[in-house]
Computed example of a mutant assay.
Amino acid sequence: MKLHLLILVFLISFGVKAQKANASPIYQLRVYEIFEKNKKDFHDRFRDHAMVIMKKYNFKINSIWESKSDSKTEFVYLLEWPDEATMKKAWEGFKADKEWIEIKKQTSAKFGDLLGNIEDRTMVKTSYSPN
């Protein structure tokens, strides 16, 4: 009886681990409106401060772009997360980070608003998405 119980616990444990290992990551697309007048200051802050602090909270940035149209300039980046709960916890930590709060306060006082509209999209790959 004990052996059966031990085998059952092992199989359940293995099944949960296998399920987590096979889970597909989720992606987060962030789009920030930035301004030509202080675009360099935004990039400096993101590169030199935000990305460093994000590493403390296990942000995985896949790519970063800048997009320009006739009416606006946008900063776009793609994050990868193992799951939505991890994403939410990381963002909570980052937003509450004392260093980040102070950097934002200092750069805003020095350069004005560095961001306009912010768009945030959580995305899941379809089963037929190319790798």
Rank of each mutant, 00 (worst) to 15 (best):
M1I: 15
K2F: 10
L3A: 13
I7V: 04
L8R: 13
V9E: 12
V9Y: 13
I12A: 13
I12Y: 02
F14C: 07
F14P: 04
G15Y: 07
G15N: 07
N22Q: 10
P25V: 01
P25D: 01
Y27G: 00
Q28S: 03
Q28L: 01
R30V: 14
V31G: 08
V31L: 08
Y32S: 02
Y32G: 00
Y32C: 01
F35N: 00
E36W: 09
K37T: 14
N38K: 11
N38P: 02
H43S: 11
D44K: 14
R45N: 02
D48K: 15
A50E: 11
A50C: 07
I53T: 05
F59K: 00
F59T: 02
I61F: 05
I64E: 04
I64L: 07
S67H: 08
K68R: 11
K68A: 11
D70Y: 15
S71V: 09
S71R: 06
S71N: 08
V76Q: 01
L79R: 03
W81T: 10
A85K: 15
T86Q: 11
K89V: 12
W91E: 07
G93H: 01
F94I: 01
K95I: 02
K95Q: 07
K95W: 02
D97P: 01
E99C: 04
W100G: 00
I101N: 03
E102A: 14
K105V: 08
Q106F: 05
Q106A: 15
T107A: 05
A109G: 02
A109E: 10
F111M: 06
G116K: 06
E119H: 08
E119G: 09
D120C: 08
R121I: 09
T122S: 14
V124M: 12
K125F: 08
N131W: 05
